[in-house]
């Protein structure tokens, strides 16, 4: 029983990290129909800059804020430089964002060197709580809480605020929103920056979780995020939460019970969903 709880907490924590990454991806796709293959690069940049700020200042909170700011700035640059010139051409978008991913990953190695960097859990989040036989690692719980908080905040913003209304309307019909006198291009930019900030946040939270960060982690995690976006349905915010938890739990259980399949299980999940329900489990409406 305690094993099951531990595996579940593990899976949930991983799932939340993937959710943070995938939610930005899915919002960007839903609104702009841009599939951002550079998203993993923003994730890795968040991790590196976050750890850098963290070690420099000694405060994890400053690390997180630094990572989010880096994400926002990079998101701005990416949208202006990379996405806008090829807007509307899917094949070019796929190609160019992948190229930008390459550049981002290599730039990381230029700035911080090609070696792995270690990241420690801050002292107040280190250690674990014991409830009888059940051992809950504090940092994992922290990730889960942050994940649900972010979900709550974004869900509130999407459902209750004016900008959320515009975004939701934009997902449904961009031209109509534009015709109603709203500068949809600016909304694109904001959403892209918000998505990048989420990716960076996910990166910096990931760093102490895995202990080390390396430039290629962006690519590895981006694949998981793509899988989540496909399973959850492109453009669906709650869908990405559900799918991320599914992928996280599946990975965590499989790693324990059938280790050989742990890496393949996500691909299989995605293949099954794509073949039988190509639009994803949730559809983005409203």
């Amino acid at each position: 029983m305690e094993l099951l709880i531990n595996l579940t907490v593990n899976g949930l924590a991983t799932g939340m990290l993937i959710f943070l990454l995938a939610s930005g991806l899915t919002l960007i796709f839903g609104l702009m129909s841009v599939l951002n293959f550079a998203h993993g690069g923003l994730f890795a940049w968040g991790a590196y800059s976050g750890v850098w700020f963290y070690t420099l200042s000694g405060s994890f909170v400053i690390g997180i804020i630094g990572a989010i700011i880096t994400g926002i700035i990079l998101g701005f640059i990416t949208e202006k430089l990379i996405i806008t010139p090829v807007y509307g051409n899917h094949v070019q978008q796929i190609l160019i964002t992948l190229g930008f991913m390459l550049v981002l990953t290599e730039l990381l190695k230029v700035v911080w060197g090609p070696n792995q960097m270690a990241a420690k859990v801050p002292s107040y989040l280190a250690g674990s709580w014991e409830f009888g036989d059940v051992l809950i690692i504090k940092y994992r719980l922290f990730i889960i809480i942050v994940g649900f908080l972010v979900f709550g905040v974004f869900q509130y913003m999407l459902q209750k605020t004016k900008i959320g209304l515009i975004v939701r309307a934009g997902v449904m019909d961009k031209d109509m929103v534009q015709a109603l006198g709203i500068n949809i291009k600016r909304v694109f930019l904001y959403v892209f920056m918000a998505g990048s900030a989420l990716a960076a946040l996910s990166g910096v939270l990931m760093a102490p979780y895995s202990g080390v960060i390396y430039a290629e982690m962006g690519f590895e995690f981006a694949i998981l995020a793509f899988i989540v976006v496909v399973i959850g349905g492109m453009g669906s915010f709650p869908g990405s939460l559900f799918a991320a938890i599914l992928v996280g739990l599946a990975g965590s259980y499989m790693a324990y019970y059938v280790p050989a399949l742990s890496l393949a299980v996500n691909m299989m999940l995605m293949a099954i969903v794509l073949i039988f329900r190509p639009q994803g489990l949730f559809t983005a409406k409203g």
């Binding site: 599939l35 694949i223 793509f226 995605m270 190509p278």
Partner: peptide
């Protein structure tokens, strides 16, 4: 599938 999905699925299968 559409181009996006195909790109991702091939990525996954080769993975």
């Amino acid at each position: 599938l559409k181009s996006h999905f195909f790109a991702m699925l091939t990525l996954a299968v080769s993975g």
